[in-house]
């Protein structure tokens, strides 16, 4: 049972396929994501563990001795479809799986900041606003008016650029339709190598259906992530299948 095979009543099930062989690790998606979603520039105290990062790029090293290679892995919210770990745990209904788009929605306005969803997420894809966000003087002008700024003490995460989905819905409505169709999230737009394909898993003719064999991280947990990956390299497939908490022994001691 994977996201690709499941049929559902959800009209759209937006998702992504990220081609790891194309990703150069340039980080354009990370910048585009932060700019689109009004993520404040990191304060001096911030590091990679306590800053807001809706999209991160990991560096993966081939653990086998032969053919040492490196791959880059962009990761955002995986938009889990089945028993979404973060939805059931939220004590005040600030997280929900949208029935129209299949997007896992996070409502900072309703968030209490208990961070239970962050401990529940196996992908560590959620960020907490540990301090007040602040913009250097003059930089407020770069804020995206379509995305509401978030306050200190709430959790946020990737929502597939909801502002862009709204814009697509509005544009469709001007033409008398309710279907926003396939829009383009900021990271997809920014990727110079077109490593990220955004589409609808429900669309049998769509780009995702045609993306060939894909895999997901931590598939064993059974959460059916809608962000999937493809690669021609075996070691990446093997690594993804291993699912486990520990790296291979030789690397740990090496």
């Amino acid at each position: 049972m994977s996201a690709t095979q499941k049929t559902s009543r959800t009209p759209r099930r937006y998702g992504m396929v990220i081609d790891l062989d194309r990703c150069t690790g340039c980080g354009a998606c990370v910048i585009a994501c932060a700019a689109e979603n009004n993520v404040a520039p990191g304060a001096a105290r911030e590091n990679d563990r306590n800053s807001i990062s809706l999209l991160r790029v990991f560096t993966l090293n081939n653990p086998t001795a032969a053919g040492r290679r490196t791959a880059f892995l962009p990761m955002m919210c995986m938009q889990c479809e089945h028993e979404t770990p973060c939805v059931t745990v939220c004590p005040q209904q600030a997280v929900e799986l949208d029935v129209l788009s299949g997007i896992v929605e996070q409502m900072p306005q309703r968030c209490l900041g208990c961070r239970y969803c962050m401990t529940a997420c196996p992908y560590h894809a959620r960020s907490f606003n540990w301090g007040d966000p602040s913009w250097p003087a003059g930089m407020e002008a770069t804020l995206n008016p379509a995305v509401a700024p978030r306050m200190r003490g709430v959790v946020e995460k990737c929502d597939f650029c909801q502002s862009r989905l709204h814009a697509a819905q509005d544009a469709a409505a001007v033409n008398g339709s309710l279907d926003p169709g396939i829009y383009t999230p900021a990271c997809v737009e920014a990727c110079p190598t077109q490593a990220i394909t955004f589409g609808d898993w429900n669309d049998p003719e769509g780009a995702l259906a045609k993306s060939g064999e894909t895999f997901a991280w931590l598939e064993g947990l059974g959460t059916q992530p809608k962000v999937r990956y493809r690669s021609g390299q075996n070691w990446l497939h093997e690594m993804a299948e291993r699912g486990g908490a520990a790296p291979a022994k030789e690397e740990r001691h090496g």
Partner: peptide
């Protein structure tokens, strides 16, 4: 340590009955 005591009433007003924390 949750840091937002002013929002504590959220859980009582909009509880998610499926959550252990509720």
């Amino acid at each position: 340590d949750v840091g937002q005591p002013l929002r504590a009433w959220f859980t009582f007003w909009h509880p998610n009955a499926h959550s252990m924390l509720t």
